[in-house]
Amino acid sequence: MNIIEPLIKIALVLLINLTTVAYLVYAERRVSAFIQNRVGPNRVGPMGLLQPVADIVKLFFKEDIVPTAANKFVHSLAPLISLIVALSTFAVIPFGNTIHLFGHDFKLMIADVNVGLLYLLALSSLGVYGITLSGWSSNNKYSLLGGLRSSAQMISYELSMGLSIIGVLMISSSLQLDKIVVHQGNYLMGFIPKWNIFLQPLGCITFVVAYFAETNRLPFDLPEAEPELVGGYHTEYSGMKFGLFFLAEYANMITASAVITTLYLGGWQFPFIENFGFSPLAVSLLQVAAFGVKIALVLLFFIIVRWTIPRFRYDQLMNIGWKVMLPLAILNIIITGFFILL
């Protein structure tokens, strides 16, 4: 079995992912600054583009404090769990069609798992362990509250997330992510790309909302709600361990946008590209670029939502999760089933 190829792919994906994380932090600060009529970081390097480097160097030189009463092992394990889970979800995301290079066929995804969708669901819910464990091991009431909130939130939103994915499953009748993407390559009525967002807008909305809760982004960032919980689950973290949580949050955002793109926005599909008559290699590269652009737009959406919508109160969060999202997701399944039967 060829082991070099997946290793190269892993290295490439990790490299691109981590760089994107660094620049995503920069982008978030910059975009939020523009939204608030400020300038944002613009001193380090041209236009502040070296700011992420400065941030990381700063985090490395910070003192790493572990509270005396904390459970030392779990305390250092938790950020690792968060980051590893966030990064490994990317393994099953197809970022391009099969590409033909040097007489070989390369599949542009790291692991072509036939139950990719289940793997994705399983891993993304594992991420909550990092947060819960960090909250518990810090031996701090605020951290613990943050961790508990995170697990409760996860349970309420995982359900509607899984149920909204079922709609996608019913349409494409496959758990394999690249099959799902290939399935979105056709057109509706000849001019609308057959992306799942157009086929099931309701499912898309519930999925996106659930995924926002899953990634702990505002308006669902209750595990770290600063005004109530100091720093939430990472109150007791400093230095690079805090940095790992930070990285994990943004890596999660990237994975989330990749998943949303794959499931609902047609993945690497570039609509109408077959009409332009490019060579197969150019088409493949353009498709990878299309995937990148879609991810970037979803990320921008994430950022803008964060600076638009205020945080939910905890009871509102639970209300929406159980009384609104869950019925809506079930309704989506019923509607999808109805249309499939027709």
């Binding site: 975009v31 600054a33 523009f34 939204i35 009529n37 400020r38 803008i304 919508i309």
Partner: peptide, 19 residues
């Protein structure tokens, strides 16, 4: 309402800065 709010935020991105 969320869409309304988001258009406002996006519009703000293109107004001059005070810094």
């Amino acid at each position: 309402e969320i869409v309304k709010g988001m258009t406002l935020t996006i519009r703000q991105m293109f107004t001059p800065t005070f810094t």
